[in-house]
């Protein structure tokens, strides 16, 4: 490393800038010995002083088993807790009103309902939409909440309760609904299942010739096996959460394969309980929001529709 400096040159003046070179050259590259511009020192000092000030005020330096807490005593956790407490303490008026008033009163109050819709939109989008669809119109196995066709009943208290405890959920009070697996559990032979579903499907629409022949026999099978839950008229019973089989609204699907699958393997929809995750107020807002969506002729939730259509809000 101690070779002679035979490549060192005497510093030269750069004609363009007027600064001297350092006198070194690397394969043609030289450097000017330009002093560090003043602003560099200036801003370096400012930045450092800012840092020192910040360290004094905020938690900053570790000291073995603890750290400097800072003069301001700031802690991000306390800060957010405080913010949330403040938000709760200064909760907008409508919240207290919605919490206290009964459903009918709120529903009759357009101003309150406007707030409910605003809050409901986000709550529904973040918690319910993945199952019930962005517009609450449902998905296969997840009911449409806007069609006024209720499994468990559509009065507000019932809906609120459904949201609170869930269906087949882990909540101790959960609603329980279980469609038996008639085929899988060998309660009905395959041929009988095909017969009964011909009848069931005939209730909500025309069936093909082959099935028409089975309808009468299916009716008897239905009375014997299904009516206990779905009712004599097959219109369902909200007490048990059994769907109406005589309308053309299907939870899982009304084509032959799907109905066969339903009766053969049974169904057991799961709806989580929201008691531990959402406050009572939020659940009440959701109840009102969901019922509002189902109002006859109600404008579909505009933001949700926009969202599903891909427009930037």
């Amino acid at each position: 490393m101690s070779q002679p400096d035979h490549m060192d040159h005497a510093p030269k003046r750069d004609p363009h800038t007027g600064h001297m070179t350092t006198g070194h050259e690397w394969n043609g590259i030289t450097e000017l010995n330009t002093p560090v511009p003043k602003p560099v020192w200036f801003f370096l000092t400012i930045a450092f002083l800012f840092g020192v000030g910040y360290w004094i005020l905020m938690p900053a330096w570790p000291l073995g088993h603890t750290y400097t807490k800072g003069l301001l005593g700031v802690d991000q956790r306390r800060t957010v807790e405080h913010k949330l407490q403040q938000a709760a303490a200064h909760a907008p008026e409508w919240m207290a009103k919605v919490a206290a008033a009964d459903y009918a009163t709120i529903q009759a109050d357009p101003a309150l309902m406007a707030d409910v819709r605003q809050r409901g939109h986000t709550l529904f989008g973040d918690n319910c939409a993945v199952c019930h669809g962005l517009n609450a119109t449902g998905n296969k196995g997840f009911p449409n909440l806007t069609d006024n066709d209720w499994l468990w009943g559509g009065d507000p208290d019932t809906v609120f309760e459904t949201i609170r405890v869930g269906i087949n959920s882990t909540h101790p009070d959960s609603r329980v609904s279980q469609m038996p697996a008639f085929g899988h559990d060998q309660m009905l032979p395959r041929a009988d299942i095909l017969t009964v579903i011909a009848y069931v499907r005939s209730l909500s629409g025309p069936v093909d010739k082959e099935d028409q022949a089975k309808v009468a026999a299916g009716k008897d099978l239905f009375a014997a096996n299904c009516a206990a839950c779905h009712g004599e008229d097959a219109k369902g019973q909200t007490a048990m959460g059994t769907p109406n089989l005589s309308d053309a609204i299907w939870l899982y699907g009304g084509d032959k394969e799907t109905v066969f699958e339903t009766v053969y393997n049974g169904r057991q929809g799961h709806m989580p309980s929201w008691e531990a995750r959402l406050t009572a107020l939020d659940r009440k807002v959701l109840t009102l929001y969901v019922l509002d969506l189902g109002r006859k002729g109600a404008p579909a939730d505009s933001a949700a529709v926009k969202a599903s259509e891909g427009t930037v809000p």
Binding site: A87, A91, P92, W94, M95, A114, D115, Q118, R119, H121, T122, L123, F124, G125, D126, A129, L134, A303, A307, S308, G310, T311, V312, P313
Partner: peptide
């Protein structure tokens, strides 16, 4: 901004999916 915007009702204005849709273009 969408994740933290509050509406006039004092609550979060957009669901996550709303923001997702806004990203598309």
């Amino acid at each position: 901004l969408m994740w933290r915007t509050y509406n006039e009702s004092g609550t979060l204005a957009y669901s996550f999916v709303d923001s997702l849709v806004a990203m598309h273009p």
